[in-house]
Design a protein around this nucleic acid. Structure first.
Lengths: 141, 141
DNA sequence: AGTAGGAATTAGAATAATTCCAAATCACCC
DNA sequence: GGGTGATTTGGAATTATTCTAATTCCTACT
């Protein structure tokens, strides 16, 4: 089995595990998000996907992204007014938005951090998701 | 001195303290944000402002908001893909986004909370702002 | 294998939030 | 009170995203 088809199989499994049809479009969108973890926007994903699938439409990219987000294979990150970005890191983590370069970095968190954050909520508030974003300058390296 | 002009004077002072010209438009935009602390969008602010200043334009509302945000009198809150909301609470606080009602609630935080959050950043990351957003269901009351 | 039926994809139009632009007006300083 | 740079204005433009309707593709069933 080639590395190619191996990858295909892995992606396919991921999709099937979420009970969604493993279409070629979904596969390639997911592949693109996984292989360069730089929090691309829908437009950037569209451009990268077109390299291997020139006939795909932007609407399909949006459809696939929505599906992947809904089934939890990908997270969306919204920072300020900028276009939504997509992140394949499923661990709990925060985001650091570099205001010089515009890049977004993942920030790993101590184990139960997000759960501890949840405890500051007053009674009656039940949070399904917690989002922690930093913004500032990162050392150039 | 009437309560009206008193209010006017207070707003005016706030603007001047930030080294920006206290124009009537900026004053009324700020007034609207301060008097109903429900995190309105630019459009909602526009509608409310028009009640007392029917000739104001949406572009001006955006201009004023940008000025007020830049000088720190108002904060902007961005949640998901929804329009930007504006918040007059200058204390450090988090936001809770009620996914049923769509409302945004302020969540007060223990004193040095945001600073403690900052300490989880790896060396080389210097955050100027920290944003903590929850999303979920709030008890109806 | 053939086909019905639902799901997914497509291209392009539509929408919605925000920004841009150029002209008119305003506010502050002398 | 006049000059000057800041501000406001309305409308056009931009940008991200969603909608729509038609087409194509799978999948299951016979």
């Amino acid at each position: 089995m080639s590395a190619q088809s191996d990858k295909h199989a892995v992606l396919c499994e991921k999709l099937k595990a979420c009970d969604i049809r493993p279409t070629p479009q979904r596969e390639v969108v997911l592949k693109v998000i996984l292989e360069k973890r730089d929090h691309p926007t829908a437009d950037e994903i569209f451009a990268r996907v077109k390299a291997s699938m020139p006939t795909i439409s932007l609407a399909t990219v949006y459809n696939c992204l929505e599906t992947l987000v809904t089934c939890g294979l990908v997270r969306q990150v919204n920072l300020e007014r900028a276009p939504t970005r997509y992140c394949p890191n499923l661990q709990e983590h925060a985001h650091f938005h570099d205001e010089v370069t515009g890049k977004v970095h993942d920030v790993e968190l101590p184990g139960d951090f997000m759960d501890r954050l949840r405890t500051i909520l007053p009674a009656g508030f039940d949070a399904s998701t917690v989002e922690l974003n930093f913004r500032g300058k990162a050392a150039t390296n």
